[in-house]
């Protein structure tokens, strides 16, 4: 699984680390440069892959930063589709080994399902790419 699926936003993790070592004042000053290096790291891994197998999306819940491309790959023996609950995006029928990808530019929570097998559901949480403000 891609590193972009980490459930804890990077900013929060840094906050925890600096808070723990008691350098609270340093946090504000250091964040921009740390943030910059974080962006570089994100850019190298701005793709997340979701496998479709056994009539399920795996992982079903994925957290990414804005600008990340999500790739759904159908590794199942059945045709599946990927459709946002309010039809914000939709794939065509994905045969075995077919893929569908979409880049999420806008932060938010995106619920989707397989419009052929509607009990197959998943969620993409898109966090802002910016580190502060």
């Amino acid at each position: 699984m891609s590193a972009t699926a980490n459930p804890i936003p990077r900013r929060v993790r840094f906050g925890l680390i600096f808070g723990a070592i008691g350098v609270t004042a340093l946090l504000a000053a250091e964040l921009p440069s740390l943030g910059a290096s974080g962006v570089v790291a994100d850019a190298a891994a701005r793709a997340a892959t979701i496998k479709i197998d056994n009539f399920a999306f795996a992982p079903a819940d994925v957290t990414i930063t804005a600008g990340t491309t999500v790739i759904w790959k159908n590794e199942d023996g059945e045709v599946h589709r990927v459709q946002e609950d309010h039809n914000g995006f939709s794939s065509a029928a994905l045969d075995t080994d077919d893929s569908f990808s979409r880049t999420f530019a806008t932060p938010g929570v995106y619920h989707y399902f397989c419009s052929i097998h509607p009990y197959m559901v998943g969620k993409i949480v898109v966090n802002p790419a910016a580190k502060s403000n």
Partner: peptide, 11 residues
């Protein structure tokens, strides 16, 4: 018009 849902709702 399949509606998304878990288990029994996905009919």
């Amino acid at each position: 018009n399949f509606q998304p849902g878990f288990k029994s709702a996905g009919l």
